[in-house]
């Protein structure tokens, strides 16, 4: 049931694993660099000037972006599962990620024509803010559709997700095919994600909102715990449910929007990471939220490394690797719920 009894110890172990995997991931690439040299190059201490540059300017931003995106998606997944009172909610499955992607693509393609006013107003942050608003709209919409009288209809939630994914996916596809804009990355990027073009600017743009979400969501951990028994129950226990609900929806969208703006749509992180953490540490949100952030980082670095190794020197889209892991995981979860004795 609960593999690690001491939750803070479990979190520390996860944090160490994140660091180790980050270093290992930075050894992989067109040039093989040993882990010791990677560590030296991080501080510019390697004798090989090329290695210093490769590690600091290419591999480090990529791995940090991977950590941020993974943590952001996973913490958003954990919070959404609490909000929807259901362990099957995931920003990818219910359409929040594709909604954010559609908003981002719209701004890139239409930014100089129909949406010129928007880009003039938001400047450099036009794309991430649009992605955030796209994610926010979808989260709110799904919540309105699937939740009634403080209870969530899981079937409705997932079906609405299918519809939204189809609509937003189609619209994104149409926009990318008709666009000649060079700023727009390929449809593959928006549907299957990639960390390949990671820059320090990406890290900065996505880092602030994601760290904000990771930092603030734990304040609602106890509310989310009570929330799992129903909105009314947590109200009667004395929590400010309205405030918590709004804050969680906004922070979730912020985190997913930021992640999608810089890495496209990477599915299943928000489903798999919280689940593994619950198996390790139990369902208490005080541990699930930070634990998911760490586990999400691990999953994304791992997938990104696999994506780079498996067809080297080419690269697979990271979302493909995540889907190969997450898809069967999702099916296993459904099967388990069929038999229904805890999980």
């Amino acid at each position: 049931m609960r593999l690690i009894k001491c939750a803070p110890c479990g979190l520390s172990v996860l944090a160490v694993v994140v660091l180790l995997m980050a270093v290992v991931s930075m050894t992989i690439g067109a040039i093989q660099i040993g882990w010791l040299d990677v560590v030296l190059a991080l501080f510019g201490l390697s004798d090989n000037a090329q290695w210093n540059w490769v590690v600091q300017e290419i591999r480090l931003p990529r791995v940090i972006l991977g950590i941020l995106v993974g943590a952001g998606l996973a913490v958003a997944g954990a919070a959404m599962q609490g909000l929807f009172r259901n362990p099957l909610a995931d920003p990818g499955l219910v359409g929040v990620s594709t909604g954010a992607a559609l908003a981002a693509v719209s701004v890139i393609v239409l930014g100089s024509t129909y949406l010129a006013g928007w880009t003039a107003m938001t400047g450099y942050y036009a794309v991430p803010i649009a992605a955030f608003l796209g994610g926010l709209t979808i989260t709110w919409l799904i919540y309105q559709i699937a939740t009634k009288d403080g209870r969530t209809d899981v079937a409705l939630m997932l079906l609405a997700g299918i519809a939204i994914n189809a609509i937003a996916g189609a619209a994104t596809g149409v926009l990318t095919y008709y666009s000649t804009d060079e700023a727009l990355r390929s449809l593959t990027f928006w549907t299957m994600g990639s960390l390949a073009s990671a820059t320090w600017t990406d890290v900065l743009v996505s880092g602030i909102p994601i760290l904000l979400a990771i930092g603030l969501l734990p304040y609602f951990a106890l509310t989310l715990n009570a929330f799992l028994m129903g909105e009314r129950v947590s109200e009667h226990i004395g929590f400010n449910v309205k405030l918590a609900k709004r804050a969680i929806i906004v922070l979730t969208a912020l985190s997913v929007g930021a992640a999608v703006a810089v890495s496209g749509v990477i599915g299943f992180v928000g489903l798999v990471a919280p689940h593994l953490v619950r198996l390790l540490l139990g369902p208490d949100h005080r541990w699930v939220l930070p634990g998911s952030a760490l586990m999400g980082a691990i999953l994304v670095i791992l997938s990104d490394s696999i994506a780079r190794i498996i067809v080297a020197p080419a690269e697979l889209p990271i979302g493909l690797v995540m889907a190969a892991i997450g898809g069967p995981f999702f099916l296993a979860l459904l099967l388990q719920r069929r038999n229904r004795v805890g999980f």
């Binding site: 049931m1 009172r85 259901n86 362990p87 209870r151 106890l222 715990n225 009570a226 799992l228 028994m229 129903g230 009314r232 129950v233 226990i237 004395g238 929590f239 619950r278 139990g282 369902p283 208490d284 805890g342 999980f343």
Partner: peptide, 22 residues
């Protein structure tokens, strides 16, 4: 309330302790 739906594997004592978060 008449019915409480909980879909997450908390221990019984954790369910009770949720009532007194402060």
């Amino acid at each position: 309330p008449q019915a409480v739906h909980l879909d997450f594997p908390f221990l019984a004592e954790e369910v009770v302790s949720m009532a007194i978060p402060y």
